[in-house]
Design a protein around this nucleic acid. Structure first.
Lengths: 342, 342
DNA sequence: TTGTAGGCGTTATCAT
DNA sequence: ATGATAACGCCTACAA
């Protein structure tokens, strides 16, 4: 025979299944002694309620899902940790799902919500201009974290937690300009990117324009299509190619710290120094950037606060059944040792 | 009204529920035209079968869970990616669960297996000497990945994929000795660690002994209890403390690359150089170690192969309903620029 | 090829 | 305080 069921427990205790159910779910109207007996029997036989049956019957499934494009991204790893702790502390179930780079996270979310009768969804990363049609399919509250997505007016029932990628990017590039740089390379996402990569590129363009520096397309480096973007390997290869091409520049702005680190290594391997020959800045504020040698100037996102706010907003949405909330956090330019004034 | 159910689809198509079920599950005996109609209706109404109901009824739940202590660990991140792809490709459901550092992964696994009627479990990380009592509670096949756990003889139905931590650690320390180092610091896990930290420390001790170098306890640095171990911050703080203490040493062996990077940074901040003044080596073979400046000599685990083997073994166990398999991979000492011959 | 009916393990609504 | 019993949505004999 297979698993122990509620019936087995009931039989063993000489009570009805409903009494066992009451004991499990802390119902008030049950004799303490009966409850004790039941709980003991449950422990003794390692009985665990079948989650599927519970979900099937219950109106409330009490499950929250977090969908992310790549747990590999160290930026997300820390936030996931925080969110999970918070969700579990509130006695909700937590499921974590990676979404393949080429899949659509909203589609996966909508499907999951139905399959598992989710109570809410958290999206980490993803498209910044999601299609209305897909959003409409998601029938539970959700919060998009780290992307200031543009959501149609008529949509409801969602939250957004992010930084202003365009503005922060602007600050960073403006900072580089203020340090005397004008030939600034940006290493960004795919050419057709519509998410963070695009926003950060927009900020770059605006900063140069404001400073009266013409935007030279040969300084804009896109990642090759397909495959993960935010890797050191990518940063290394793109930078090496750039150095070998003979393009002139004094600074590199990488749209992630991982890319920045790859860029630094390429510069070292090429026989140059950071920041003496070339300045490098990153984005996100990872630990890695702080401990790199030289430590990398970056835009620090308040990860823990953002994670907690994401969870807070989601539960608010769940309880009030509606509304739309948005919290744009301020990032902070964290100076390292990777920029030289020229 | 709430969700679309199989009944709604049946009604809309003017057929019985079983016909719809047949269409969904690719049963052979169904009229292609009927099937087409049903599939169209399903798509049109965004119907998704309720997973709980399916699992409740099905003998096979087709779900594999991966439990890990910290998706934050970049070592695991890559493997998780690989395993997930492989599991999904085999048309199994994949659930990912983080286990808190202070929780017992086996307990969580046993509970999850019952709750979700799992088909199999993958443990990434965890104790190297799991209690028999806990193992006995896990009634589905499981594979322990990255830890060469010691399992009682009478146990069955499990697999192990790992490297020989003790031996690889031995090689690394022996390598440092061969480079002329004898005052070698090891930065390892908690003092009471029973997992990888202990094995790597054992290897360290054996290498010194073999070389006839007395083991000086002041060169063994343990992490403070509680909290995550494998962080750059920890490496930094412990190394800084060590430097300030005036203890003499020429090399540091950190039991993870993250710790090694923290150690390097502390050395730089202290005004010394790597490897000119102090050599540093790590463990795991993360990307980070390769792109650090100087790149860090480390023990490279064949992550992708290990991940695939983990998945392969699990499915083998599931199909054959039994057995025990073990695959110890060979790691490789990857030389970087962080060790000097003296 | 298709429909009907019973049951998976649980919770909730009734009686008692 | 407790016990039958009817759902929950789906799958699968079995019958047609």
């Amino acid at each position: 025979m297979g698993q122990v069921t509620i019936k087995d427990i009931a039989r063993l205790c000489g009570v009805g299944v409903s009494t066992v159910s009451r004991a499990i779910n802390n119902h008030p109207d049950i004799n303490p002694e009966t409850k004790q007996l039941i709980m003991d029997t449950i422990r003794e036989h390692n009985y665990v309620p079948n989650n599927s049956a519970q979900n099937l019957k219950r109106v409330e499934s009490n499950t929250i899902a977090l969908l992310t494009k790549g747990v590999g991204n160290p930026l997300f790893a820390e936030m996931i940790q925080t969110v999970q702790s918070d969700v579990l502390a509130k006695d909700y179930l937590f499921v974590l799902q990676q979404v393949d780079e080429m899949e659509n996270e909203l589609e996966v979310g909508a499907r999951l919500a139905r399959e598992k009768r989710l109570k809410g969804i958290i999206f980490m990363g993803g498209a910044s201009r999601p299609k209305e049609e897909l959003l409409a399919r998601i029938q539970v509250p959700y919060v998009i974290c780290t992307v200031d997505a543009v959501i149609p007016e008529n949509m409801d029932n969602y939250g957004i937690v992010a930084i202003d990628d365009e503005a922060e990017s602007y600050h960073m590039v403006d900072y580089l300009c203020s340090m005397g740089h004008s030939r600034i390379v940006i290493i960004t996402a795919y050419a057709h990117d519509t998410s963070i990569g695009k926003l950060r590129l927009d900020g770059y363009r605006r900063a140069l324009e404001k400073r009266g520096i013409p935007c030279d397309d040969s300084l804009i480096v896109h990642m090759p299509a397909n495959g993960p973007i935010y890797t050191m390997k990518n940063g290394y290869e793109q930078t090496m190619k750039l150095l070998q091409s003979g393009t002139e520049f004094t600074a590199i702005y990488a749209i992630s710290d991982t890319i920045a680190i790859g860029a630094c290594k390429a510069i070292f391997d090429y026989g140059l120094r950071v920041p003496d020959d070339i300045s490098v800045v990153g984005c996100d504020g990872l630990d890695m950037a702080r401990y790199y040698q030289p430590s990398i100037t970056t835009i620090e996102q308040p990860l823990e606060e953002m994670a907690l706010e994401t969870s807070r907003i989601l539960f608010e949405l769940i309880q009030e059944k509606g509304g739309r909330k948005k919290h744009i956090f301020e990032a902070r330019l964290r100076e390292g040792q990777s920029v030289r004034k020229i």
